[in-house]
Amino acid sequence: MDEFLHQVLSGVASGGIYASVALALVMIFQATHHVNFAQGEMAMFSTFIALALIEAGVPYWGAFAITVLLSLILGAAIQRVLLTPMAGSPVLASVGVFIGLLLIFNSIAGWLFGYTLKPFPTPFEGPPVLGGFVTRHDLGSTAVTLAVLGGVYGFFRFTNLGLAMRAAAYNPVSSRLMGIRVGRMLALGWGLAAAIGAIAGMMVAPVVFLDPNMMSGVLLYAFAGALLGGISNPLGAVFGGFAIGVIENLAGAYLVGPELKLTLALAIIVAVLTVRPAGLFGRTVVSRV
């Protein structure tokens, strides 16, 4: 029973990471109907920036803030430079650009920082808490994730800017007529997604170690989480991310073993698409033709 509880709690911790990345994916999907295959690599790259800052002597939370800010700018810049011209082009073109970005970030990171596994510091050090069930880092990273998710929710729900962004995603044409700068909103959405990804990257790096391929598994779980919760529903995607974290840990411990964890994500994706393509909380999209 103790072992079970331990697995569930550590699943919640990694689920928070998947939930963040899933939220970033869903934000971009809702605004542009693109799936950002480079989301994981962008987060990985941000984490390397954070490591470089820390190694240069910047204190952890300073490096954290700078990295989040840089990621926000980088994400917005990518949207403006590469994706604005792609608006209205076929799906293949946008997938091509995302895969191109994935390759570029992966190889630049490998070129600048090398391909060896690097340890990444955690600000939450100390002995395990809650009766030894949870490491300090798991607790801390879950708290950070929840704070991020709460902050994003508050931003979209209670601020004018958040409302404008939702409007721009929901109905770009009407929003433009209402005086909302839709292009800027999209860029800001991309920036936010990149910043959320960066935080997820910095939270997962102490657990899995940092290398250019760190995020490929995380991205896969985030995909699975987003699909499970419903790719059209941000709250659903967050729930899906947490659920995937717990499922992954329990299945890894009791069912399939650590060797097939990625295959489990694949199986969940296929199962969701077969049984309930809209996800648990998503709406089935009906379009008039």
Partner: peptide, 22 residues
């Protein structure tokens, strides 16, 4: 089309693991 891209991407990521499976 995007869902197929996603599923096949997941398949590609999981392939080496399946090939190594004991």
């Amino acid at each position: 089309g995007l869902y197929l891209a996603l599923t096949t991407f997941a398949l590609a990521v999981a392939t080496p693991q399946l090939l190594k499976y004991h």
